[in-house]
Amino acid sequence: MAAEHSPLEQFAIKRIVELDVGGVDISFTNSSAMMVIAVASITLFLMLGTRRHALIPGRWQSVVELAYELVARTVRDNIGIEGRPYFAFIFSLFMFLLFCNVLGLIPYSFTVTSHIIVTFVFAGAIFVGVTVLGFVRHGLKFFSLFFPPGVPIYLAPLLVPIEFISYLSRPISLSVRLAANMMAGHTMLKVFAGFVVALGLMGVAPLIFIVLLYALETLIAFLQAYVFAVLTCLYINDAIHLHH
């Protein structure tokens, strides 16, 4: 029972269908289910919202267009016209994280993005991709990213290691920021939910707190998805333009 009521119990991976292909565990878990639901929800949300191809959009289509414009503007502002090829990726990334974050707020559901491995796969793939992109576009000149122009040469021994470490820490900060935010918020909700039950009638106080916290968590769910997308744009911009 103690484990059942642990605030971390909600993050447990539960295998729904055990699957093993060539020694690789590809079991369909509650996490996989939420990913599939997220992908399906995003697709339905976008496709049904635009099914009328309305010249004057209704509410639903307006929201779809808003999401599109938000990402399009972010890509344009941060990368410029050369960001066009990465738009579909950034859009998919933003929508996936947003839906995973928000769907995870539904009670008894599962938050895909609260697992560091999920966010790290994204961050690591982006890190590798951006680094490859930088070398493809600039060759060895890509190393000048670690030494901004206009800096006195004698600062190089100090500056280059700092820049290099900060570059290497990008995938870590990117993935930890999202996963930690999700995990902390959900844990806190769960803890206070336990207080509501334990305090009986006095539980109204933590209940009110939960309502407010829930609103904050919804904001964070959106904000963290957006931050992830913006930082990805910035990294791509660095690789394309070297110096901003």
């Binding site: 690789v24 990913m35 997220a38 992908v39 998919s92 999920v118």
Partner: peptide, 17 residues
């Protein structure tokens, strides 16, 4: 399993988008 399903789900999403 998380990595595998994430890759599958995101690849599908990217394709659909």
């Amino acid at each position: 399993p998380q990595i595998v399903w994430l890759v599958v789900a995101f690849a599908t999403l990217y394709f659909l988008m």
